[in-house]
């Protein structure tokens, strides 16, 4: 369908603040993503992972370099062309992307908001259709979350909410899927379910870019790894632990290197969110 690469970034940079004078979050990013790849985006907090994903879903405008996705230059997209582009890119936000009191069904419909006609969306809000229900239930079942379709989202646990957010992005059906720490607030078992679904998607020819904190999961599921530190790419290559370990500490200072070692998931540095997700798991 598309001849060239799905994503092509050259010298991509992003500053925040007025006139690009503020903090430089990304600089000199050269990345090329092909169809069917599942690329793990790694790096400590503040490395620029979320910013890169927000540049890719056209929430932010690049301040330097070029960024082309599906052959479209993202710096010049506007209006209906911007919306048409965004329909092809599904995003799983890290959190706070679900409407708390609305039902799971309503939240899932938001994924298709770009492609539904307005009158059709209003119609569906009043009279749910069987086809929509079936599609939603199939995706939810894939994610191990059956029978929650009519529940308000704030009745679900954090891990369940995360899976609803994943389901919403899957129902949008974009060719490029961006996932911002989709397994940060779920237990290990759910993390495997979610990443397995994403991997299968990549197997069907979609392109998946997923930011992760857990090194073992990244090594296991991704076809390629991309590591960021202080806004620059420090590793881009196969998920080979040896090659990666060689690159990371040498390329940067001790603090960043320390961050990488510890994301290995040893019990000593389990983040607070894990203790909580274990809790969730028992509650279920």
């Amino acid at each position: 369908m598309i001849a060239g690469p799905v994503v092509l970034a050259r010298g991509l940079g992003k500053h925040f603040g007025p006139g690009g004078q503020g903090a430089e979050v990304l600089r000199g990013i050269d990345v090329r993503l092909e169809r069917g790849e599942m690329v793990g985006l790694l790096g400590p907090s503040g490395a620029g992972k979320t910013t890169l994903l927000r540049l890719l879903n056209a929430s932010l405008r690049p301040s330097a370099g070029t960024l082309r996705v599906f052959g479209e230059d993202l710096a010049t997209l506007r209006g209906s062309r911007l919306r048409a582009y965004r329909r092809r890119v599904a995003t799983i936000a890290q959190q706070h992307s679900l409407i708390p009191r609305a039902s799971v069904r309503h939240n899932l419909r938001l994924g298709r908001l770009g492609s539904l006609q307005l009158w059709r969306a209003l119609w569906l809000a009043a009279l749910p259709s069987a086809a929509e229900r079936q599609a939603a239930q199939r995706v939810l079942a894939d994610l191990g979350l059956p029978g929650v379709l009519e529940q308000p989202v704030d009745l679900l646990s954090g891990g369940q909410q995360q899976r609803v957010a994943v389901a919403r992005a899957l129902l949008q059906g974009g060719e490029l899927l961006l996932a911002d720490e989709p397994v940060a607030s779920v237990d290990q078992e759910t993390a495997h379910v979610i990443l397995g679904v994403l991997r299968r998607l990549a197997g069907r020819g979609h392109t998946v870019l997923v930011s992760l904190h857990q090194r073992d999961l990244a090594l296991r599921y991704c076809t390629r790894l991309l590591a960021l530190e202080h806004g620059v790419v420090v590793y881009d290559g196969p998920p080979d632990p040896a090659a990666w370990r060689m690159t990371s500490p040498a390329a940067n200072g001790h603090a960043a290197a320390g961050a990488f070692e510890a994301t290995g998931g040893t019990s000593s540095s389990v983040p607070a969110s894990y203790a909580r997700s274990t809790h969730d798991h028992i509650a279920q």
Partner: peptide, 21 residues
């Protein structure tokens, strides 16, 4: 704003974001 952005990045129009988000 994160909620609004989650609606917008699906390609929804401003009116759709208003009504459904």
């Amino acid at each position: 704003p994160r909620l609004v952005e989650a609606g917008r990045v699906t390609g929804a129009s401003e009116l759709a974001v208003l009504l459904f988000v």
